[in-house]
């Protein structure tokens, strides 16, 4: 086992990795969500202009 002074480095590294991965996934989801919302809004506006109901 390595000396305990090195342990803090590994502990910080592990928790940093956890938060990087969770944050990256949440960011990807949010970005995807925003893009989809924008596209839906755009399509709905164009359909309304054509005088078509946007309801399913």
């Amino acid at each position: 086992m390595e000396s305990s002074s090195n342990h803090m480095f590994y502990l910080v590294a592990a928790y940093t990795l956890v938060w990087i991965m969770v944050s990256a996934y949440v960011l990807i989801l949010s970005k995807r969500n925003q893009e989809l919302k924008d596209q839906v809004k755009d399509f709905e506006t164009r359909l309304r202009k054509q005088g078509v109901s946007i309801e399913d």
Binding site: R32, K37, Q39, V40, F43, E44, R46, L47, D56
Partner: peptide, 15 residues
């Protein structure tokens, strides 16, 4: 998000 994606697909088809 998946449901929004499906809705988008339907809207795209109509457009």
């Amino acid at each position: 998000q998946m449901l929004t994606k499906d809705r988008l697909k339907k809207l795209r088809g109509r457009l």
